[in-house]
């Protein structure tokens, strides 16, 4: 029966589309988180495939720290317009202005952690009962134990010891009032799968993923972009180098890779020969051994 065989990317696609459709069927008011990064771009592409020729039956939501690469915002706005999709923008700045969170101080200040409050507030005020995210299990070891359908209590917290067993392709999204689910449709994808899929489907990406000249500085072995809201230490020297993003997040904690890769083929070569994980460039994970687990417990993506 080898004629009825599909490759690993098609099988991952089929699984993810199944999960996304399951969310649309089981929840009343789901939302898909969108950051402009490659994982959420792939997830959104899968959502469009899942409901074609209808429009995606839920809105997207961007938790915006205000510390963005302009290219990512431009990409977001263009994509939403081209596909006729609604994208809610929840601003971390609003959470700061309302006194819900206090801005971190010092040169390493990041709004990454503050996003959790903005996200939970947005989920609560808009009464979303499921929020889909582009998290992958290969990213980080606490994520390796995450379910596709991840149950959150009324405080938005994750209890890793009390997760629902998930068997075959049966997903249990039943919940009590006030609780919600985080759903991770691309759980089983690796960084390589994402890039191969982008190549296979020829998906348009923000220019940041390809090599470009940029003013950068080095902090604790990580190259960061010099943008107006970045505070530099006296000893930090700004250089112009050929770089590209391996992930796109908040500028304050997105490490750039020295690279001259300017096509998807180049990037796949680069990923195949790289010896550090993509989160190795994320300053937020370096804070402690269980930094990710702690943030996830509190309600992070």
């Amino acid at each position: 029966m080898d004629k009825y065989r599909i490759n690993h990317l098609k099988e991952l696609e089929a699984e993810s589309i199944f999960v996304i459709r399951e969310v649309a069927a089981q929840f009343e008011n789901p939302v898909m988180l969108f950051s402009g990064g490659k994982d959420s771009i792939v997830m959104f592409h899968l959502a469009r495939k899942a409901f074609w020729p209808a429009k995606v039956p839920f809105p997207l939501m961007h938790i915006d720290t205000g510390h963005n690469f302009p290219e990512a915002i431009e990409y977001r706005d263009r994509t939403m317009e081209e596909t006729g999709t609604k994208c809610i923008v929840a601003l971390v700045q609003d959470s700061i202005n309302e006194g819900r969170v206090v801005e971190e101080k010092g040169v390493n200040a990041s709004r990454n952690k503050l996003q959790t409050t903005t996200l939970l507030d947005a989920i609560e005020s808009r009464k979303f009962d499921a929020a889909m995210g582009g998290g992958r299990r290969d990213e980080e070891k606490a994520r390796a134990k995450e379910r596709f359908f991840s149950h959150r209590d009324e405080f938005g917290q994750w209890d890793p010891k009390n997760q629902r067993p998930e068997l075959w392709n049966i997903f249990n999204g039943r919940k009590n009032m006030g609780e919600h689910f985080r759903v991770f449709p691309i759980s089983n994808w690796t960084e390589m799968d994402v890039w191969q899929y982008i190549y296979m489907e020829q998906i348009d990406l923000p220019s940041l993923y390809f090599t470009h000249k940029r003013e950068v500085f080095n902090r604790d072995g990580v190259w960061l972009a010099k943008l107006p809201f970045m505070q530099l230490k006296d000893t930090e020297e700004v250089k112009e180098l050929d770089v590209r993003c391996r992930t796109i997040g908040d500028v304050t904690c997105t490490g750039l890779t020295l690279s001259t890769a300017n096509s998807l083929e180049d990037i796949i070569h680069e990923v195949a020969s790289t010896r550090t994980t993509e989160r190795g460039g994320r300053a937020d994970d370096k804070r402690s051994e269980s930094a990710m687990e702690d943030r996830k417990r509190e309600g992070y993506f």
Partner: peptide, 24 residues
Amino acid sequence: LLTDGLRSEREQGITIDVAYRYFA
């Protein structure tokens, strides 16, 4: 320690939950 991802697992030196791993 590569597969024991949760703090309580590392502390107790046991695997509690299903961990998913990938290679190609």
